[in-house]
Design a protein around this nucleic acid. Structure first.
Lengths: 150, 150
DNA sequence: TATTGTTATACTCTATAACTATA
DNA sequence: TATAGTTATAGAGTATAACAATA
């Protein structure tokens, strides 16, 4: 029921209660501290999303599919994967059934990096959501999941 | 309590429950349809945020302050304001007390544009959050506000 | 000396479309 | 013909720092 939201003094009635703006602010707020860790490790935000997503995709994933997961356009992702491949983080295997498709998987080094980052991210999540109690955090995630579902 | 979250078939356990990712997805999901309207009007997302923020700032606002509100780096905003000023949407008045500061305000045209967009945004918010009932939406906003506060 | 805002640089991302190869 | 992925290009955003003006 509180109302003080904006970064500083001047209030802005509309944006303060407009959902996409609240979401954008919350996303920035909860990911900024962790992004500093990424930067110190020379890993970009989109690369981090690739690592986090691929970590749980046991059977690999195509580029188009991955691009939807990581919220990055396909051509951009394609070049980002070049960088990650050259650094030994991911591999592009030719698809078994459909040879147009690529099966993206993490290398051992990629998995190791992903694991390290996931652990750090979960630790940060705790700190960055300290304003909410356990029940509220769970409820927030439930509502967001409901919002994203179609 | 549902679990189907990701855009398509392959599930990703970690990212599905990681808050910053959920927030990023929700932000994209709830703002994508409206962004098409912005595009058709030739207005960029950052410009929309400027309009929405300045609409309620009766006494104007400085560039640094605004840059925190619209989540855009100050130099980027500075050039964006050049464009908006040349299109007659905003004005930069020299600060009264401190002449280093600029008092950013909307022109009449800027206010008119902002009003039109705010009305459209509120209409879209209803549609894009149709998955949630009125109570849930209110609760979501409350939790997000709590998350953003320091 | 610190702060507000602009300008400059090199780098990266984005959007769009053209292209290759499979199907 | 449609799809998966890459490559190409122009435009826009980002990060950093240097700079000017004011305090």
């Amino acid at each position: 029921m509180c109302s003080k939201t904006t970064p500083d003094d001047e209030p802005s009635r509309f944006v303060e209660t407009y959902l996409p703006y609240l979401l954008a602010q919350a996303a920035q707020r909860t990911s900024l501290p962790f992004h500093k860790i990424l930067k110190s490790m020379g890993i970009k935000e989109s690369e981090w999303r690739v690592l986090g997503t691929l970590y749980d995709a046991a059977n690999g994933m195509g580029v188009t599919q991955l691009s939807r997961h990581v919220l990055v356009p396909q051509p951009t992702l394609s070049r980002r994967l070049d960088h990650m491949e050259s650094r030994g983080l991911v591999t592009r295997l030719a698809g078994a059934h459909d040879r147009r498709k690529v099966a993206l998987t993490l290398t051992a080094k990629g998995r190791e990096t992903a694991k390290t980052l996931i652990d750090a991210a979960l630790a940060h999540e705790k700190v960055d959501t300290a304003n909410l109690n356990g029940y509220e955090l769970q409820e927030l995630k439930r509502l967001l999941t409901g919002l994203v579902e179609e």
